[in-house]
Design a protein around this nucleic acid. Structure first.
Lengths: 347, 347
DNA sequence: TTGTAGGCGTTATCAA
DNA sequence: TTGATAACGCCTACAA
């Protein structure tokens, strides 16, 4: 049996109140008394019972993390950012994934009810209405890359529009006039923003839009593969492709190479996310860098601030997405420099 | 304020004991009474306070997940398997990562104390002694791919030895006599097993071992890159390379292509893990498939069985690792078939 | 600076 | 079949 605060008190010859104060610094404790308490704690290996503590404190020191999915490097990086920040702030993470639609999300939220002090959630396919209905009001929430237009919850977003725009603009500056895109899922907020950025860049470059150049996709490698093939099959083939994420860009690259289309000589290619594996493709992939790790950390920092009373109202924040030039778009970067600067994926 | 069981009882005109029994099925409740209770629960939107419940129950319905790291696809897949199984069994996941050495591990374990009903942990660099000291005795534990030789905790392992052996044997069957390896971290249990498998296969093929062919690595893409270069620099270059994981294989592939070495014509290549991105490399990577998702799910299933009293003593289990042939080793597989069968990485 | 005692919301043990 | 009531382990006024 684990020792209780009462046993510690007895062992130290003081009251439970004193032990509590000594442990939490919640009141004055004489130096000599504190020493006795600490000795008792150590000798009994006492650790406060967290259930009992949160029953009265109404705090759990846990943060809920709700993600639509866990596929791919994007999410490992995101969770890593969240985890590190949470750990540093003394919080634990309650993780839950696979929540694409409203009912899944509702169930997951229901399960977390009362177990967390704050929530960071990513729900790229769910709208404002549903979120307002489902999300709890009693705990602070930070929504990641989510199309939330209300003001009850905080948001934190990547500048998908700006990032896509700069990538496509860059392709146009390489001289390309027919630039294809492989889209993300239509209901996905980021996908919509990236498509918008693509179109904006084209219009700025005075390139007339062509719907045939907008291939459907769903952020999977397979979609990149088939999307690229669809674009290749066009009578008037594009000379450059912008994939709405890196997984699709890698799939597209594979399709292009299988078809004997050289990259970037015959076809320029750019992706989005700048996931670490893009540095090891051949040629290395030009991509839009997204501060994924930082996004996770920032979300936690905001939550912790609100829980701690340091911050108040829900905020809206946008993180920059910056183009990283590698060889797939036609720019040249020496290989060694690239590898040395990278960190890579480890186990 | 959230409604309490007392309010529900008042609302339904019964005692709290009856409400508790009705909700938990822990005792007889009249059908008419039950209906009244359910109506009260619904109208008050009552949800039991989990802290209070676990205070007396001594159960949290949470499972701790301890991982050394979160980089790469391996871990997203693992967590996905764990998460799905936990969700299905009605458990929540308390996630904690970045625990390479004993002190990190101890701290994380300390933080989870009393908060979880079971623990799935992966600690590939920590030995039996340390684990016996650090791990809790009051909750069931399943150790993943860990070099634990004691009998206090359960283990679940991938057959790294067998997998590596079959991969290298296959390379030998292709006629290769000089086969290099790019190793994982020396302290890593899986890395050790894979090296052992590599050596066993060589000896079976009557190929004399050569330490110069064993390049150091650390499971990162960069290590694969530099490791391949080291092997290329040998006076007597190998004609095939076995990388101890896929991330390194991909890095190695990049180095080979940068050096103008054709794969598989000039150099055969095989990896380990069969992570989804290996299907999109060019050429597609021959790799040893590991049932990552299943490993996670199985670990949870065992934990749940023990917590539920269905199972008893800690078991030791080994999961098979099977070679998947693609083009990088010299075998041919049509591209379309490959892509259609895959699922890929999604967001 | 320290101690006493009440209560946080449940479940569990008795009687009734 | 139902209801009082005592834990569970901790924090926190309030008193001393």
């Amino acid at each position: 049996m684990a020792a209780t605060i009462r046993e510690v008190a007895a062992h130290a010859g003081v009251s439970v109140a004193t032990v509590s104060r000594a442990l939490n610094g919640s009141g004055p404790v004489g130096p000599e008394t504190r020493a006795r308490v600490e000795a008792a704690v150590a000798s009994l290996k006492y650790r406060p019972n967290s259930a009992a503590r949160s029953l009265i404190t109404r705090r759990t020191r846990m943060l809920g993390v709700l993600l639509p999915d866990l596929f791919g490097e994007f999410f490992s990086e995101l969770i890593r950012g969240i985890d590190q920040a949470a750990q540093a702030a003394g919080y634990h993470l309650l993780l839950s994934s696979s929540h694409d639609d409203a009912s899944d999300l509702g169930a997951a939220l229901e399960g977390m009810h009362g177990r967390v002090d704050g929530l960071v959630a990513m729900a790229p396919k769910v709208g404002t209405q549903v979120l307002d209905d489902l999300l709890p009001e009693n705990v602070p929430v930070v929504l990641l890359n989510t199309a939330y237009a209300g003001d009850a919850y905080g948001t934190l977003r990547i500048d998908s529009y700006g990032g896509a725009r700069s990538a496509v603009r860059h392709l146009a500056e390489h001289g390309h006039r027919r630039i294809g895109i492989i889209n993300g899922p239509v209901e996905n907020f980021d996908a919509q923003e990236r498509l918008r950025g693509y179109r904006a860049a084209l219009s700025e470059a005075l390139v007339p839009p062509a719907t045939e150049l907008e291939a459907a996709g769903d952020f999977t490698g397979l979609a990149g593969f088939t999307g690229a093939n669809a674009l290749l099959a066009l009578k008037d083939r594009p000379t450059a492709i912008f994939a709405a994420n890196d997984a699709m860009a890698v799939g597209a690259l594979s399709a292009l190479q299988a078809a004997g289309v050289r990259v970037p000589a015959d076809m320029a290619l750019a992706g989005f996310d700048d996931v670490s594996s893009t540095q090891y493709t051949n040629p290395p992939l030009t991509s839009v860098h997204v501060p994924i790790h930082e996004m996770g950390a920032r979300a936690v920092a905001r939550l912790v601030a609100v829980v701690g009373g340091t911050s108040e109202l829900p905020q809206r924040e946008k993180l920059p997405a910056t183009l990283v030039l590698r060889r797939s778009c036609g720019c040249g970067v020496p290989v060694e420099a690239r590898m040395a600067a990278s960190h890579g994926s480890r186990r």
